[in-house]
Design a protein around this nucleic acid. Structure first.
Lengths: 229, 229
DNA sequence: TCAAAAGTGTTGCGGATACACCCATGT
DNA sequence: ACATGGGTGTATCCGCAACACTTTTGA
């Protein structure tokens, strides 16, 4: 079946920057897909696909994420729309980019066979304008993690303060003073002490905490912001 | 001439939230268009139109802005892409929203005949999801003006500190202490004292300043941010 | 001379930073 | 017993907020 329009229309796609984090290894990764077909065959690229006519743009992003990783219900946010005329050599394609945050502990993935995780510090060349898109995503993540509690999306349900700190250090690429970090976080009173401790570590076991989402929502309505560093 | 595709494609449009500011009246406005045709005939809406196949999405926004106001070379930034399935009752339409900042002193407009400026505090009902888009734009402007020097886009080339302060007060909807505001702004050393003074006012004439764009660019590269309030 | 806005300093407080040692646990 | 990370307090500094009067100018 074919569709005919009076004026030419660009194709509309979504592309997803999927960040995955493994707290045990303190390692921040991005999921990339190896392209089988031209253009850029053999290159790596961001997972993405066409927006179907009966789904919202956000639904398309959720569907892509689900198809590539099997996960649903994770943090997903629109990033930016890339609309240069020649960004795809075949056709006029406008792409709405999203980024997702996935805790690899909470969501043990069945990544698609042609997909692979890459360390953020060791990325391959990407097809299309995907290097630019990924750069945007990293920038957004760095900015956003400083004043909104999105870091918890990357950690297990319960986590230690050191895990949280290492996450921030990874993303912001700088060291943070342990005492000051703990003082500030605990003072906000948004971490619930679960009363349980880490297990299976070859040293003193750390307290396990949970982020208090409900309390945060309340405070947020009153204009209190979550400023960490 | 008609265009045929194997799969259905949404139409792609841009919508522009055009903020205009008149320093003399301390009044922040938005440009709206009265719709002549259904749907929402008679209602007001944001200026916008289709993305042409041979122009980038940003170019389409620039063109729209130019068509509606006659101005070019003003601040214009992508806001968000609105992609709900039913946001336009006629057809599937995805819209990339932009917002622009126009100093009404610097750019005396020939606004299109069907266009009109509205006080931000006194808006009519808008067609489509344009109220939501406008809300996004206001929120973005409020957030962004606090840590990036975009306020100057809304003022005349040279301005007084009081004009600058009133602009911030308008946008942030709160009062700011005059002495603290001046101290902070002047301390940043990003305002050039032109040596000239206001004229034609019925009281003591104020110093005229200019924003030092070059110096700001330099500092920005070194990671210094412009935090005003 | 009056009205209206320009211009100007100081103080107190709270949050940010810098910094080093003892504790608990598993091997 | 040792290695590894967990956990803790204090002193200093700087930026933020609060606050009121004098000066200049045109009408």
């Amino acid at each position: 079946m074919a569709y005919t329009y009076e004026y030419a229309r660009p194709a509309l796609t979504v592309d997803c920057v999927i960040f995955g984090y493994e707290a045990s290894a303190s390692s921040l990764k991005v999921l990339l897909i190896r392209r089988k077909l031209p253009p850029f065959a053999g290159d790596w690229s961001l997972p993405g696909g066409f927006v179907q006519i009966e789904e919202s743009v956000e639904a398309a992003a959720i569907r892509e994420l689900q198809e590539e990783t099997g996960v649903a219900d994770v943090f997903l946010e629109q990033l930016y729309t890339f609309g240069a005329v020649d960004r795809d050599p075949r056709d006029r394609v406008v792409s709405v980019a999203y980024y997702a945050l996935v805790s690899l502990q909470r969501h043990p993935l069945q990544a698609a066979t042609d997909a692979q995780w890459f360390e953020l510090s060791d990325l391959p060349e990407l097809g299309f304008d995907h290097t630019e898109i990924l750069g945007y995503a990293v920038e957004r993540l760095r900015r956003k993690i400083r004043y909104e509690p999105i870091g918890f999306e990357l950690l297990p349900e319960t986590f230690t303060l050191s895990q949280l700190q290492r996450l921030y250090e990874q993303i912001l690429e700088r060291e943070i003073d342990k005492r000051n970090f703990r003082k500030k976080l605990l003072k906000m009173d948004l971490l619930i002490d679960t009363g349980r401790k880490e297990t299976g570590v070859a040293h003193r076991a750390a307290q396990l905490y949970q982020f208090d989402v409900q309390k945060y929502q309340l405070l947020k309505q009153n204009g209190i912001s979550f400023e960490v560093v």
